[in-house]
Amino acid sequence: MSDFLAAIANNQMPFLRYALIAGILASVTFGIVGSYVVVRRITYIAGAIAHCVLGGIGIALYAQKVWHLAWLDPIYGALVAAILAALIIGLVSMYTKQREDTVIGAIWAIGMAVGLLFIAKTPGYIDPMSYLFGNILLVSKSDLWLMILLDIVIVTAVWLLYHNFMAVCFDEEYARLRGLNTKFYYLALLMMIALAVVLLVRVVGIVMVVALLTLPAAIAGHFVNRLGRMMVMASLLCMIFISGGLAWSYSLDLPSGPVIIVLAGGAYLITLLISRLRRR
């Protein structure tokens, strides 16, 4: 632990500090958005959005190299892809007469496939593993500013619309009768998922980011019975998992993403076990 703290303080290794700050900043958004995902039961939609992000990353990497668009950082590609995926999935689930889960599964796979194809055609070696499973070396200082901005946007929106979002998640039909534009709120929720996913893709990776979105909220759900408290507790848990996971992975020289997820997943399983035993 002490070597981790020393590394955080070490100016030779700013990436570790950036990853930690990124994790703590993102935890705020993750606790809030993750709580909505859990109570609204749309984990699989969050999964599809997260995986589509690879499509945007792939296209951005390709554009950087082949079209010489040096400013086009992969995170912007990720952002656009996530928002597009959220919009398409939202509209599909609202209007389609097809089986919704099949369509979402298709979008999930197509997003990844497009990303891998563009990465394959991009000159030079790019390891897709970094994007799939996270690589804290990819976190830059400018990402932190983006995270602060997204945190402010999401916290403000949710503070203002907290009751409306809750009503839409709890009883969509009734919310509509009360004059709420439920389609708008549903799309806004998917947008927030998209933004949250992009925030932490570099730290934990596309494949595992959804676990970090939902596990803290799911754990909190066992201890509190108010949505607001669930959000606060989920945010704190998320901070603990990320900082604990980073410290642990640094000490043991392991990749940070999987360690963070194993920590969160383990805590979730223990919580399930405890609540099972308590109910007896």
Binding site: V39, R41, W159, L160, L161, Y162, H163, N164, M166, A167, C169, F170, D171, Y174, A175, R178, G179, L180, N181, G221, V224, N225, R226, L227, R229, M230
Partner: peptide
């Protein structure tokens, strides 16, 4: 029809009757 795990209080549920579509706190 309600999700038995949804974290709301009886008061939270009752207050939903006061929503009017505007972006506001109670």
């Amino acid at each position: 029809k309600f999700d038995p795990l949804f974290p709301v209080s009886a008061l939270d549920v009752t207050l939903m009757g006061r929503l009017d579509g505007r972006a506001r706190r109670y």
